[in-house]
Design a protein around this nucleic acid. Structure first.
Lengths: 328, 328
DNA sequence: CTGAAAGCGCTTACAG
DNA sequence: CTGAAAGCGCTTACAG
């Protein structure tokens, strides 16, 4: 691809690169450049199909209009939708995205973060798998523009946006009780230390009528099917009559498992965090705690860009959005 | 983020930037640089936590180790998985991804392509929404590294990887017949001109026992629910007894619609292109034509990188993978 | 109103 | 064995 450069435009017009740069960046009037000259430049730029080299530009001014996004797994529908929302808002604002997945691997996350920073991203939107905020404390110390999304850290002075997981989980348990469930069990997922998951577990525990009933199954994130199958097998012989799933992947695995037998569990009532389309058509019916994914994604971008644009006035924010109970 | 540069290393060691660059790029021995000097350089680089600025590097050598990926919609599970496969292979090979969505909007696709090229991506993996290969013919003419994935163009000398859509669709129709279906209808989706969809339609038409039975519903991609609801309502009064869905989104919409009534259609047999988890738990059972998504994604990356690395010897390839019928 | 020059951080001939 | 210099394409003081 032979692309036109500033130089090409300048030479073909007999003006300097500096002038062309100024005009094309909308500083023509401000710098009092002849209107006719400005027109000529713009015309020629269009004619040569000029597009500025963002990396040369980035190298010079230290901004690349690129936002890094790191999530655990984009093929998880929750993160897929989140990335979509982020992408749409970013596109509107003129930013590109570099999206990467960690698959809950802290080593990979470390590498990705330095890779991305190294690629001169202007800022980072992160759904972190780290168990400790210290892993990213250097970013905070260096004032690197960072927004935590979905997963946050306590007492960490960095912009974040998430949902009220504890309340959402409590709402789920109360719903189960209201439907006659006596003993609800919680299916959680590894890594259990990420804020969203641990808060949901706390919400479950806090909402239990009798702490004696507390029962948690921890399903490994990279082997959900088997973990769920084992848990369900164990439940068969017990008197738990409700299941709270901490995320949609768990609920989906339960549905699959139930569809191939486990008749004795057909009467168990299920509710899950994340509202996904599958629940509309699933049998048994699965109620859910729906998250405002779009708002979360768009707002993350807004927070980040505000941080770029107003580094001085920008106030660190911790936004917490409400969830909605969807009864089925 | 104050990052260490070549200069920092060079100065603190009293050597030149050139030497440092050579050593760090593994050309120390080749250029006969003193082993001890090399060691010192590497140590200091580690100590200062040096990471090269990829964009300065890219500006200089014209490569950025970044691959652009453009798909219609990453929140569609098919493309989500495809991107995941692409990401995994790219990560292994040391490449980053810039992923963007077109939402089937040709204008946006045009803009994204020039944006990405402009960001010095080394190559592009594209699932195009264009109705005409001429839209990207300039890329081909300029020898820009490009791999078409999922959606291809006929008689277009550019690497591509896709599945045998026609045969897959035919297989689906034959399966319906084998299960006693007499008159299968096809639910297709807009834009209907993209290769994958049009080939599936051709497969459907070609496999019909009686061309008189041909019946197509064209569902708009941005209003699937309503389109499907209308189509199903119309079907109620007719004698079609099988449905072939050209993709998973259509099938999911049918499942939802059926779950809220339409009893008279419960006995219709359904098969869909794309095998998704939902089908395992869905009622009615939905058979499917499964695509080798992982292979498609990984192979796209391989093709692209081979193109970079061996620009001379690289032969244009059009890979077509087989689909698999999943009976349910 | 416009241009010449410096410099962002890197790599690569070229010279010794 | 190593260094000085040029240049990738851009923007921005500075000068006139």
């Amino acid at each position: 691809m032979k692309k036109a450069s500033l130089k090409d435009i300048a030479e073909s017009l007999g003006v300097s690169k500096a002038l062309v740069s100024l005009v094309l960046n909308g500083k023509g009037d401000e710098r009092g450049i002849n209107r006719q000259t400005q027109e000529k430049v713009k015309l020629k730029a269009k004619e040569l199909n000029y597009i500025p080299n963002q990396y040369a530009r980035g190298l010079r001014i230290g901004r690349t209009n690129t936002i890094g996004v790191i999530v655990p797994d984009i093929s998880n529908i929750f993160y897929g939708k989140l990335c979509k929302a982020i992408e749409q808002e970013a596109y509107l604002r003129g930013y590109n995205l570099i999206i990467s997945n960690t698959y809950e691997d802290a080593q990979k996350e470390k590498k990705l973060i330095s890779d991305l920073i190294n690629r001169n991203i202007d800022g980072l939107i992160l759904a972190s798998s780290f168990d400790d905020k210290n892993e990213i404390d250097n970013l905070r110390q260096n004032d690197f523009p960072l927004v935590l999304v979905d997963r946050t850290f306590e007492n960490f002075e960095v912009d974040s946006i998430s949902v009220s997981n504890r309340e959402g989980a409590a709402k789920a348990i109360e719903f189960l009780y209201s439907k006659g469930v006596k003993k609800p069990v919680c299916f959680t997922i590894s890594p259990v230390y990420v804020s969203s998951i641990s808060e949901r577990i706390q919400g479950y525990l806090g909402a239990l009528k009798d702490q004696q009933d507390a029962k948690l199954f921890q399903i490994p994130h990279n082997n959900i099917e088997e973990g769920v199958a084992n848990a369900l097998a164990e439940l068969k012989h017990q008197d738990y009559d409700g299941i709270f799933c901490v995320n949609n992947n768990i609920a989906k695995a339960i549905l699959r498992e139930l569809s191939v037998g486990q008749d004795s569990l057909q009467n168990i009532r299920i509710i899950s965090f994340d509202d996904i389309e599958v629940f509309d058509i699933a049998n048994p019916k699965i109620s859910s705690i729906s998250q405002p994914i779009e708002t979360m994604g768009k707002k993350a971008v807004t927070l980040l860009i505000d941080r770029f644009d107003n580094p001085e006035e920008h106030k660190i924010q911790h936004l917490v959005l409400e969830t909605v109970l969807i009864e089925r």
